[in-house]
Every structure is written in structure tokens, then in C-alpha cells.
Design a protein around this nucleic acid. Structure first.
Lengths: 335, 335
DNA sequence: CTGAAAGCGCTTACAG
DNA sequence: CTGAAAGCGCTTACAG
């Protein structure tokens, strides 16, 4: 492995000059620059990341902290990780993965070992314990998810409120006066999942304003039980014929259950949903929907984190990525 | 942030002594050790990862290189990443994520920047281009997937051959003489996917030996087309009534299509399948199956890589994780 | 515009 | 059993 000294010798300049062209932080004459670059190419040199980290106290690593609640159903995690990694590289950063297995400890260790320059916390919940060590160490971080109290930490998420409004309006505009609100498992709300709660609250509020009565249905965890619940609720003649779905598992199973019950969309049932974008790749989705925006959210998260690393003292920000409605003719127009 | 010097001062010893107790590579008297440990605890000291990396030329980072073929259908990726990260931490390593977006380049950069001590390549294909820079630099690596030529690199994978044998035998033992072989999209075989090819070859060979005629069915990409293909093939009266499925998308949709066609399992159709373990969490699965073992495979991969890092010159190994049959009464016994 | 020197925070022979 | 010194490969004031 070539070092900066080898390059310097090859180019006939000093090590500091090589460093200057490498970092670009100091003017170096075009001729010298060319010589250095030639030497770099010839020796296939590239900066030793550890050495640079030590000298600059910047690791150029971002820690992504994953946690998962069992009640969640999200093939989308991988999509987020890829999007984060790509966005990070765009800005010169690498991503190190931290799992929740030993939870907060992983964060603490990464901080005290100076392994990363900052953190991105995925799937944030209210009073998220991972926030504690970060907050204590005043370490740069971005939350993906929007707890009520971000404790002065930057945060980004899909704008679930406007997503909820889009869907409620879509039903109300078509003349519906009541809808089944198919929710996540209760555990998820209890666990403090921010998106579940925020969507629910916004949906209820908007429905109220638009004169749409919402009949909430808690869907249990596990594919069989999801199907059973849907079957039962769809069969119940008392239930409204419109469905507002915020539960990926239910969205996935619904077409099959409807088909099984011989129910057509939108003739027999009107359906709108908010779900993770990845779902569309895996399932037959034919409902008017608002989809999560993993790429946009990931990019925003990385950008915010990099800015925060550069300027630790700027005021904390909250950003919401606005989703859009994907119409798919799944709602009956009642006039 | 406390440094080793602060700890030394606090404990009243030299920096090298502190280092000795930290690394454990030199005997230090119990009293001195205790003093050092007290100082470490008091100052909340923990070794600066970059500095240690520079001094030892060990980063304690493992690069996990993800790539994904569009024809693949695998909510299992996240499961693999988590399992790898957990296994790595167990051995003191962190995981940095490298995506395929700029493919081989990411690997090359990580090598020349000495960012990681070794690589784990996920979803390896025949003649995988990511192998090139690794091989050139003689860098430690483990392939997850088993190409015909591993080029002297360690490799681990599920034993698809024995999985195929288990399933074929299960059908043959029940007296079936022919089966529909529901395969991955042709693109995947063409792309050199090792698991797709290895399963197919083993299944055919075993079926031959057991007198089971296999009628191969290529399933296209995309949920709608998967359903359409299944529907058509199941309706075709010429087709065998037993199904051997190696295609996660098909496994996921099959129960619904069967139900739709009013076909019962095992009365009307016998089904066995090999699929990723994660699938069972997401779908209603009721077929006798062989499931992938992400945790076992990930652990083996990490262990192999760490051994390889420790002993660069040991001969390359190939390891296959043996799967087991999960019986679910989905095969009719023909006597 | 370029270079010599110090320093980042560790580890590791080497003396003692 | 412990410590002083050199070195890992960079960057960055500071002189010139």
C-alpha cells in the first residue's frame, strides 16, 4: 500500500503538498497538482481512512441505528438502508450498521470509540432510549420519525398528516360518509411508534372536519390473523363499505381476501391506503394510495446529518417529506 | 473525550501499561490492572477506533457488499444484514454497508482506503465482478453464495442441493411421479445466480434418480404476472398435480391463487417449496418446505471471515449450511 | 506557492 | 512487571 510519502517522493514534492492537493484545502499550482495526480494514479494511492480520521477527527462514517418492533411489517427496511448508503456515499460518507440487539449500548460504544461522525436513528419511537447517549454526548444525529419531543435533535419523516388528509379527502370527496379505519396492531401504538400515531391522529381529525365517520379496526400481528380479521370485518354487514388502511400487512392481504369473498373494488368496497413503497414491488396493489418515500426521506436524513456535523450549533430542524396520492380507481363515487 | 494519556495519569502508570491492560496482550499485575480499570471507568474512556486502526492496521470493520437483481424477490435482505451485524459484533467487528450502485468501485475504494479488514459478498453470482478487486488485492473475503469457481476465496451458502433432495424425496416417497417445477424468472439463471442454478440442477438430478418427471415453469417478474402464470398453469389439466416451488414470489401468491381456483391442498394439489425464512413472517405459508437459514449462514460467513483475517494463508474453505424439511401436510400420499 | 515540524491517539518492540 | 521511544499515515498551522 502506497503512503502519502511514496506519492511525495514519486512527485518530487513534500508530503504536505500532496496532502494539500488531496484535501483541496490549499492552493497548489497546476503544474504541481498535475505531478501529484500522476503519482497518485501511478501508485494507485488512496488515503488511509484511519489515518485521516485520526488527523482530522472526522471518520466520514455515519452510524445507522436500526430497531424493529415485532408488530411491524416492513420489507422496506432494506430499501431504507440502501437509500441511506447511496445518499451517504454521494456526500463522501460510509454507513456503519448498528442493530438494536444490545440497543443503546451500541450507540454508546460508537460514540466513545469515535467510530462515527453522527447517527441516523431509524424507526424512532416516542421517548426513544437511543436518544439518551446521543443527547448526553451532544453528538450529531437525525431522527427518522417524528416524536413529539425531538429534544433538540434534527428529525425527518414522511408527512403522515398530509398523507392522511389526502386519503380522507379522497373518500369524502367521493361522497363517503363513513369508513373502516384499518389500523396497525395496538402494540405498535403502545410502543410509541410515531408514524402509526401521527397518521391515526391526523386521519381522525381530518375525518371529523370532513364529516367522515371512522370506525377503527385493530389488526393483530401475523399473516393468518390479518386475513382472519379482514375476512370477519368485511363480512360484517354493519361495517361501512369504504376502507382507509394504514397497515402494510393488511394492504398486502386485502386483495386476496376481497377476491375470496367475491367482493369487487370499487363496486363492493372502496379502498384507500398508505403503505411503504416497497410493498408495490412485492404485492398486487390496486388501491388508490399514498406511498412512503424511502429515497427522499433517506436523502433528506443524510443531508441534514451532514449539515449538522458541519455546523453543530445550528438550530435543530424538522422536515417532513410530502407524499402524493397515487390514484388507482379503487373508490366508488357516490355523488 | 479522554485519551489513553488521561487514563495513565489518573491511574499513575505509563501509557503503555494502560494499553497493555486494554489489549490484554501483556501480563499486568492485578493491582495495576485494577487501578487502570478504575481510571477507565472514572473517565468513561474507550479506545479511539481510528487511532487503534492506524496503530494495528486493523480497522475491526467488515464490509458487506449488497447487490440485487431486479428479478429477485427477497424481503430477506434485511434479515441477512441484521444477522451479519449481530454476528460481527459478537466478534468485536462492526459492519459497513457497501451497495452495488457503483459496484466494484465501492469495493476498490474500501480496499485502497483500508476502510475494512475484509468483505462479505451477498448474493454472489457466477463470475461476480466484485471478486476482481478483492482477488487482486488478496484481501480477506467470504462469498455468500457458491459459484463454481470461488477463485480461492472462502464461501458459504445454504446447501441447496440437499434442500432440493429433501423436497424431491418428499414428493417421490409419497408416490408422485411427476411435478411442476416452478422456477425463478429466467433472467435470474441467466444472471448467474448461484442458488437458483444450484437448486435447479440438484432437483433435476435427484428427480431423475427418483423417477420423478419435472415439468419446468418459468415465472416472470412482478406480482401480477406471477399470479397470472400460476393461475394458467394450475388450470392446465395436462399439468401434474404436484408442485415443486423455488421462487419466493410464487410461494407467496400460491395460496391465494389456489384458493381462488377452489383448489385444496393436498387433495387437489400437492406443494413443496424452498424459500427464504423471512417469507413465513409475512405470508400465510402452509406448504411443506425447506427454509433458508439466514442466521446460520450469516454467522458462518462472519466466522469464516474473521478466521481468514487472522490467518490469511490458510487454505480456502467452502461451507454449506444444511437445511431441514418443515413438514406441513401439503402433499397427498398416493401409496 | 512550498516544505519542515508537530500532533492526532493509539500499539509495540525494546530496555531495564 | 513497567516505561520511554518510535511509529502507524495522515493534516495543519507556521515559516519562508
Amino acid at each position: 500500500m502506497a503512503t502519502i510519502g511514496d506519492v511525495a517522493r514519486e512527485a518530487g514534492v513534500s508530503r504536505s503538498t500532496v496532502s494539500s492537493v488531496l484535501t483541496g484545502r490549499k492552493y497548489v499550482s497546476p503544474e504541481t497538482t498535475a505531478k501529484v495526480e500522476a503519482a497518485v494514479a501511478k501508485l494507485q494511492f488512496s488515503v488511509n481512512a484511519g489515518a485521516r480520521a485520526l488527523a482530522t477527527s472526522r471518520t466520514m462514517m455515519l452510524g445507522v441505528v436500526v430497531r424493529f418492533h415485532d408488530a411491524e411489517f416492513s420489507p422496506a427496511l432494506a430499501a431504507y438502508l440502501m437509500a441511506l448508503t447511496d445518499a451517504a456515499r454521494e456526500l463522501g460518507y460510509s454507513v456503519v450498521l448498528l442493530t438494536e440487539l444490545d440497543g443503546t449500548e451500541a450507540v454508546r460504544r460508537a460514540i466513545s470509540g469515535r467510530q462515527v461522525d453522527g447517527f441516523i436513528l431509524l424507526n424512532v419511537v416516542e421517548d426513544d432510549p437511543r436518544l439518551e447517549p446521543i443527547w448526553q454526548a451532544r453528538y450529531p444525529a437525525v431522527l427518522v420519525g417524528m416524536p413529539r419531543d425531538t429534544r433538540g435533535v434534527d428529525a425527518v419523516d414522511l408527512d403522515f398528516a398530509s398523507g392522511a388528509a389526502l386519503l380522507v379527502d379522497h373518500l369524502a370527496d367521493a361522497g363517503h360518509r363513513e369508513a373502516l379505519f384499518v389500523r396497525w396492531p395496538e402494540e405498535l401504538y403502545a410502543a410509541g411508534s410515531t408514524y402509526a400515531t401521527r397518521f391515526a391522529r391526523a386521519a381522525e381529525e381530518r375525518a371529523d372536519r370532513r364529516g367522515l365517520r371512522l370506525a377503527p379496526i385493530a389488526v393483530p400481528v401475523g399473516p393468518e390473523r390479518v386475513c382472519a380479521t379482514l375476512r370477519q370485518e368485511l363480512r360484517n354487514p354493519e361495517n361501512p363499505r369504504a376502507l382507509l388502511v394504514h397497515n402494510d400487512a393488511a394492504v398486502a392481504m386485502l386483495p386476496f381476501v376481497l377476491h375470496e369473498l367475491g367482493m369487487g373494488v370499487p363496486q363492493d368496497r372502496s379502498v384507500v391506503s398508505l403503505h411503504s413503497a416497497e410493498l408495490a414491488r412485492l404485492y398486487v396493489l390496486s388501491f388508490t394510495s399514498v406511498e412512503s418515500e424511502p429515497v427522499a426521506v433517506a436523502q433528506t436524513a443524510v443531508e441534514m446529518l451532514c449539515k449538522r456535523i458541519a455546523e453543530p450549533d445550528r438550530p435543530a430542524r424538522k422536515r417532513l417529506v410530502t407524499p402524493r396520492l397515487e390514484p388507482r380507481d379503487s373508490v366508488e363515487f357516490l355523488g
